[in-house]
Design a protein around this nucleic acid. Structure first.
Lengths: 233, 233
DNA sequence: TTCGGACGGCATGTATACAAAATACACCGT
DNA sequence: ACGGTGTATTTTGTATACATGCCGTCCGAA
C-alpha cells in the first residue's frame, strides 16, 4: 500500500511561534501601527488559531517591548521611542562583545581539547551557510532580507558562545535590533554585513580579544550610523 | 446593612505573578535545585491553581533563564552557571548606567518644565520609602530582605528613567541579579546598600554624568566583590 | 449644563477537557 | 545477548467554556 502524504493540509507544528513572528513582523514593517488596540480574539480569528497561542505570543512580545498589556484592560502596540535607540545600542554593545569574546574562547577550547563536539560543528556550519546566503543577497541587491539574516547571524554567534544566559538576553532584544536594522538597511546594510566575516574569522582563530574588539566596533558603527541618520538634537 | 468583609478566603488577584515569584524564589534559595524536572501538573497542585497560570509563569521564567523548556518534552530547572556572572555584570553595567543617566536627565526636565508630573512624584516617593526601609533592615541586621529591596530599588530607578525598553530589559535580568545578590549579601550587602543614597542624590540633582558614574561604579563594585569571592581562575 | 455614580458590554484571566507529541519500556527479531 | 521497533504512558499544546475585572455610556441630581 502506498504511504500517501498524510498531510493534505499541512498543519502548523507550532502555531505559537508562527503567530508571534507574524505579529512582530507586522509591527516592525508598519502593518500594525503603534497605539493600535489588539485583542486576543481578533488576532486569533486573523491567524486561524485559538486565543491561547495568541495569548502566549502577546506575552512574549510584551517582554520584547512591542506590546503593552494591562490586566483585564487589553493590549496595545507600543510606541517604539527613537530615544531608546542609543541606550539600546549601548546595552547591545556590552552584550554582543561578551558573546563574541566567549565564542572565541570556546572555539579555542574546542580545538585544543581534541575534536570539537558535534553540536559545535553544526552551529559553526550553520553560520558559514548564513554568511554565504547574506553575501548573495547583498550581491543581488535584495536588501529587505538582510534584517532577518543579520539577527540570525548575531544569534548564531551567541549560540557559539555557549552561554544560555547571554543567548536568551540577546533573543529578548533581537526584535528591537531587527527593527533598528530595518530602518537603516539601505544605508549601512552592505558594509555592515561585510564586517561579519572578519568577526567570524577572529572567532575561528580563537582570538577572544580580537573578536570582542571587532564585534564592539561593528555594533558601535551601527550605532553611529543610526544616530547620524536619526539624530534628535 | 453592614458591609461585611466579602472575602472569607482571600482570593488571589493575580495567581500568575504569585506563582512566578514563588518558583523563582524556590530556585534562588535552593529549594528547587538545578536539573530538577518540573511538570506543570505538579506545580499546579503545589500552589493550588490550574495549569494555565503555571504555564505562563514557566514561560516568563524561561525568558529569565531559570528554567529550560523543550516542546512537548517538559521543563527543567536550569543550571545557573557561575561563569555567566561576569558577562551578566558587564551587561548590567551598561544597562543600569543608561537608566541612571536617563533618570537624572528626566528629573532635570521635570523640574525645569514647571511642576513634576504626578506619576513622577509617586515613583520618587516610592524610592524614598524604599531607601528608608532598606536602611532600617541594615540597621537591624536582617540582611535576608535586602536582595528583594535591592532589586526593587534598581527597578525603581529604571521607572524614573521613563524608558519602557530599559525597564523591561532590567526586569528580564532582575531575577538573575537577585540571585547574584543573594549569594553575596553577607559580604557586600551593607556597603552596597549605602551607595544607593548617593545615586539617588545625583539623580535628584539632575546630574546625568554623575548619576551614570555612580551607578556604573556601584555595579562595578558588586562585580568585583562577587568575582573576588567566587573567582574561577 | 455639568458632575457623580451605577449599569452593561466587552476583553482578559482562569479552569476544565481533549488532542498531539515525545520519552520510556517492553517485546520481538536477529 | 543485543539492537530495533512498536506500543503505552506521560506531558505538553490547544480548544472550548465560564468567571472576574475594567471601560464607556447613560441616567439622574445639583
Amino acid at each position: 500500500m502506498l504511504p500517501l502524504p498524510p498531510d493534505p493540509t499541512p498543519v502548523d507544528p507550532a502555531p505559537k511561534q508562527r503567530v508571534q513572528d507574524e505579529i512582530r513582523h507586522d509591527i516592525i514593517f508598519g502593518s500594525l501601527q503603534p497605539g493600535t488596540r489588539v485583542t486576543e480574539a481578533v488576532l486569533a480569528a486573523k491567524y486561524g488559531v485559538s486565543r491561547i497561542p495568541v495569548r502566549e505570543a502577546l506575552r512574549a512580545l510584551e517582554a520584547e517591548g512591542f506590546v503593552e498589556s494591562k490586566p483585564y484592560a487589553g493590549s496595545t502596540v507600543s510606541e517604539i521611542p527613537v530615544d531608546d535607540a542609543d541606550d539600546l545600542f549601548s546595552v547591545r554593545e556590552a552584550l554582543e562583545a561578551a558573546t563574541a569574546r566567549r565564542a572565541a574562547r570556546r572555539a579555542a577550547a574546542q580545538f585544543s581539547a581534541g575534536e570539537p563536539s558535534a553540536e559545535w560543528w553544526k552551529a559553526r556550519r550553520s553560520l558559514a551557510d548564513l554568511l554565504d546566503v547574506g553575501d548573495k543577497a547583498v550581491a543581488e541587491g535584495n536588501l529587505q532580507s538582510l534584517p532577518e539574516l543579520n539577527i540570525r547571524f548575531h544569534l548564531g554567534i551567541a549560540d557559539l558562545s555557549g552561554s544560555a544566559s547571554l543567548t536568551a538576553l540577546l533573543r529578548q532584544i533581537s526584535g528591537k535590533i531587527e527593527w533598528l536594522y530595518a530602518t537603516d538597511v539601505d544605508n549601512r546594510g552592505k558594509q555592515s554585513w561585510s564586517e561579519h566575516r572578519s568577526i567570524m574569522a577572529a572567532i575561528d582563530a580563537g582570538n577572544p580579544a580580537e573578536a570582542e574588539r571587532l564585534m564592539a566596533g561593528h555594533v558601535h558603527q551601527s550605532r553611529v550610523g543610526y544616530l547620524d541618520r536619526f539624530a534628535t538634537p
